[in-house]
């Protein structure tokens, strides 16, 4: 089975939130509360147990060539965020029950009937995606529409996206499409367009990657996401060294300490 992915092109996003609604509709995700944030048009604010797609509204200083705005007007950029389905997934590696698995599509999937709600995955996700539901205890996140993919359909968000900002397909084909799109944008003068796919970090690349403008940090995308389990080896090494030092110290105490 081919490894599939999402390529989210923020330059095409119009902030309609159709992906958020389609995701909730298909996956029967409950509401997030009815709170107004006062932060642009973004009342969802972050990915969470009840938000598996989230459109970010980034209000920027004026930059030339952005949407034809007058030079003194600020720009308003949108980007649809989602679980990154990391190559080395922190949540999957931390899950003690085997609830979180790698599917045949390469995606990271939480099996809700196995999850026991321990929450280890929540603290190990370098992107803050996976989240526990208070009244339920279990952890939830984007399923990559595993059920739809099994039936040969594209995920609900990609299906609903009216502008083609969310592309779904085979991962290697999407990466080539992203390269072509970047070349096209650069040729058109949008030189700050860049791909966010942290292949050189400990997550080893993501199956959902993004095209953004300027610094990905403006879109809350971490420059160097760290999977905590990569710290296991130095942690165990340190523990082993510590233990060895204690053993050696004890033996030395016996060997060197004279009888009083």
């Amino acid at each position: 089975m081919a490894v599939t992915g999402f390529f989210t092109d923020s330059t095409l996003c119009i902030g309609c939130k159709a992906c958020e609604v389609a995701c909730k509709e298909w996956n029967e995700v409950p509401d997030d509360g009815f709170r107004w944030s006062g932060l642009s048009y973004d009342n969802t604010l972050a990915l969470g147990h009840a938000t598996w797609r989230h459109v970010k509204f980034v209000e920027h200083e004026a930059s030339i060539g952005a949407g034809g705005n007058a030079p003194d007007l600020m720009t308003w950029q949108f980007s649809s965020d989602v679980c990154k389905h990391c190559e080395n997934a922190g949540c999957l590696e931390a899950c003690p029950t085997g609830s979180i698995v790698r599917t045949e599509f390469g995606s990271v999937y939480v099996q809700p009937d196995i999850c026991n709600g321990c929450g280890y995955c929540v603290v190990t996700c370098p992107f803050g995606v996976i989240d526990r539901r208070d009244d339920d205890g279990r952890a939830f996140k984007c399923t990559f529409c595993y059920d739809r993919q099994k039936a040969g359909l594209e995920p609900a968000c990609a299906k609903a996206c009216p502008t083609g900002s969310i592309l779904f397909g085979n991962l290697d084909e999407l990466e080539r499409a992203a390269d072509r799109r970047i070349a096209q944008l650069h040729a058109a003068g949008m030189r700050d367009a860049t791909i966010y796919n942290p292949k050189n970090s400990s997550v080893g690349g993501t199956h959902a990657f993004f095209l953004v403008r300027g610094d990905p940090k403006n879109y809350n995308l971490p420059p160097d996401p760290v999977v905590p389990t990569t710290l296991l080896r130095p942690a165990w090494n340190a523990a082993a060294i510590g233990a060895a030092a204690m053993v050696v110290g004890s033996l030395l105490a016996f060997a060197l300490g004279g009888r009083k």
């Binding site: 939130k17 609604v21 509709e25 509401d31 997030d32 009815f34 107004w36 009342n43």
Partner: peptide, 9 residues
């Protein structure tokens, strides 16, 4: 709910 929560006020 899916629409109301997106612009609640």
């Amino acid at each position: 709910s899916h629409l109301a929560e997106l612009q609640p006020e």
